[in-house]
Design a binder for these strands. Structure first.
Lengths: 188, 188
DNA sequence: TAATTTGCCTAGGACCTCTAGGTAACCCTA
DNA sequence: TAGGGTTACCTAGAGGTCCTAGGCAAATTA
């Protein structure tokens, strides 16, 4: 009887791939066990329970997304950085729908603190350096940007924009224009 | 043996209340049956399956939300209408978290067409009358507003804003200010 | 090689989903 | 008001997911 060589990390990785294939809400302990050709009870020595698996998945996705965004804004500032950040964020959500859904889980405050969730606002603050914003405006701006990015991506995925022929891409660019001008005019 | 007097509508209403209590993802056919003191199999003469129940709940919530928003913008225009719309939207999400989650379900295109989902953009268009926008800018603006409202509310609910002491209320008002100035300056 | 740890197993309980088929309450019409 | 039809709810049961307890065998360490 060869062992499958399971670890919490390998399970989390596989769960992430599974999420992108079948949707975050369909990531199940049983399905994951099937994928490794193993009984579902065997997974419980690596993960506490199904919720624990989902939290690990969320933490993984948050880290990946932060990585992608950080890379995208390196060496850019102002409008360039804003557009790069936004496009990296949206691209990740499109390429990894299941992982992206996972990032929207409500995490325990301590888990969230450990995770890369905080890195997002740090990076948003980094991109704001090209604009002329200080506290508390900076925090307001971080929240506005995050809200708009997430809201757009989320509605796009739920099909809310399909009712109108106007290209989604054009609306996205227009939204970024709007945000750029808001940030430039913010101090006013 | 007295009958419980079930109908699809009563089930949907109860499911909506249940969603607000225990969360949308925990709305289950069994729990609903327990609530009516009835066996779960009995519900299947009124609803096709669990997914059907969730879709009905989503349609109900979309209609309620549209109602609230419509009421809020009646007799207002421009900035007043924008703020009223946004606050009504956010208030609904806070008062009815389970119902609000339901509105984010991806619906079949034909179901979505039947539902009040389309009314949201109609009303957003109505509120834009106070600004000077024409197609395709109007559609872009509708999408931006919807994205920002949903994004903010969604992140607020998932606890993404708790990491910073700056009041969420202040950031919300600032976001509305930003949207108002974007809309006024849009033609530029 | 022996002792310990670890990985995966079987068994089984609790809960949820859904189908098939039966019985009893209700409604209508004569 | 008695019969007939319709509908509401039932029991029974199969299949899936979650999770615990306890066992055996493979891997690791002494």
């Amino acid at each position: 009887m060869a062992r499958a060589g399971l670890t919490a990390d390998r399970l989390t990785q596989a769960a992430a791939d599974l999420a992108d294939e079948v949707g975050f809400e369909n990531v199940t302990v049983s399905a994951l066990a099937r994928h490794f050709g193993v009984k579902d009870a065997s997974l419980y020595s690596h993960i506490r329970n199904a919720q624990d698996l989902r939290v690990r998945l969320a933490v993984l996705a948050l880290a990946e997304l932060a990585e992608r965004v950080a890379e995208s804004i390196a060496g850019r500032s102002g409008r360039d950085a804003l557009v790069a950040f936004a496009n990296a964020y949206r691209a990740y959500a499109r390429e990894h729908p299941g992982r992206y859904s996972a990032t929207q889980m409500a995490l325990d405050p301590d888990v969230a603190a450990e995770s890369a969730a905080g890195k997002h606002s740090e990076m948003t603050r980094a991109l704001l350096r090209g604009y002329d914003l200080w506290e508390p405006d900076q925090t307001d701006a971080v929240r506005l940007l995050h809200s708009t990015f997430h809201g757009f991506v989320s509605l796009e995925r739920s099909g809310a924009f399909h009712s109108h022929p106007r290209g989604v891409e054009a609306s996205w660019l227009r939204a970024l224009d709007a945000l750029d001008s808001v940030l430039r005019a913010w101090p006013a």
